[in-house]
Design a protein around this nucleic acid. Sequence first.
DNA 1: TAGCACCTATAGCAACGCTATATGAAGTGC
DNA 2: GCACTTCATATAGCGTTGCTATAGGTGCTA
Lengths: 241, 241
Amino acid sequence: MSFDGQLPPKVRLLRAAAELLANSAGGAVSTRQITQLAGVSAPTLYHHFGDKEGLFDAVVAAGFEEYVAGERDFAPSGHPLEDIRRMWDNHVQFGLNQPELYLVMFGNIRPESRPAIVADAEALMEEMLNKAAVAGQLNVQPREAARSILAANVGVTLMLIAEPAAERNLELSTMTRDAMIFAVSAEQASGTPEDSGKSSVVVAAIALNAALQASHSDQLSSSELKLFLEWLHRISTSSTS
Amino acid sequence: MSFDGQLPPKVRLLRAAAELLANSAGGAVSTRQITQLAGVSAPTLYHHFGDKEGLFDAVVAAGFEEYVAGERDFAPSGHPLEDIRRMWDNHVQFGLNQPELYLVMFGNIRPESRPAIVADAEALMEEMLNKAAVAGQLNVQPREAARSILAANVGVTLMLIAEPAAERNLELSTMTRDAMIFAVSAEQASGTPEDSGKSSVVVAAIALNAALQASHSDQLSSSELKLFLEWLHRISTSSTS
DNA sequence: TAGCACCTATAGCAACGCTATATGAAGTGC
DNA sequence: GCACTTCATATAGCGTTGCTATAGGTGCTA
């Protein structure tokens, strides 16, 4: 039951914290619980992790490794947008499987202090969206698309976690997911001739931009790129008005 | 500075809690702070509100009045989807104006225990979406649309609150908003003849259903309605595959 | 063996949410 | 006017929280 043994106290603390966090039914986890289960005393925790939040951050880092592993484990299908769909589902499933850990990672919001993990998750999604952009399947900037999709993904996951497990309806997830992906997808306006004419320009421009950034090219200076993006923005907004 | 005065202790406690909550820069607010500012002692708080959460719930209820007032204050524009857009923006603005209160209302997620306020906010949005459905502007069930839009709305608002105020980019909000509204809108597939043929059936069916429910009609029994919705679901999914 | 980091334990502080108990104030029946 | 009940508030303190000042042990290098 306890982690007394040959393992170093640091590892025992991490495992004890992770286990208590996973099994705490919504309630808070105290440092005394953690240190007792780990078989160490209070100052050891603070020596290794600074404070309680530091320990939790370490647990979260381990959880994020698992999250990233899940987000990367499937082979790229060759259809980037399909991979984004799987990333979304994997995100939701991760949250529902380990709600307490997920809440520490994504639910512990404080004003003006962004959890580092959010930026990491955004980068992960942006990376995948970049492939879609290069393939000409993206309607907006990969970064903006990633932020938008992740925000909706987190919102949906939090809502599902808050619901009683018996009532959880995953259609909320699939519907919101498809709505977001469809919105950033280049395929959406392929039916309307007038819009498709404009949007193909946008798509081509975005694909070009993504390709440029992927090749670390300096063919556009940062100021030129800024102007380029401004024009791009003007084009895309004028085509949807 | 303090609320010592002629007001009853219950009101003083509510105001003190609201003020401390609004001005607490991310940190927790203690009962001792509240009771001191209110000029009462601890048991008075517990006599009136049961416990700390009870007091916070009361503050949230007052905040929700304000929220609802904001959501209703604009005159219906005659374009329900435009009103939904304004509801979204109002939601985000409410969160950014009073982040601490918003976090208590929508950010205090615990597994399997849904804040009552989420259900209220969903009902508010569903009410508006019902008008869109009756007008034949909706692509999916109003309830599902409301849940989906609200989840994305909360997710975006939490993300924006977590960002440093200087970096907040409201385009994240407008982009996600338009993506969600577009996704539930009946206008989306009007360009593709084949899809529009199918989707007009879906829209008509949803409008009919909304009108039936609005008139409290019993022309369809609950089992008939269930089957009807199942067909509807089959139609709508087959048209998007 | 001496000295020096490193790591851990004992004991305890201030602050937390909350409550057992007692006191005052206000209304009610006679 | 007086006992009685009920409601509302205060005094004091319980148990727990996150965290730390201080000291002791352990293993390495010289």
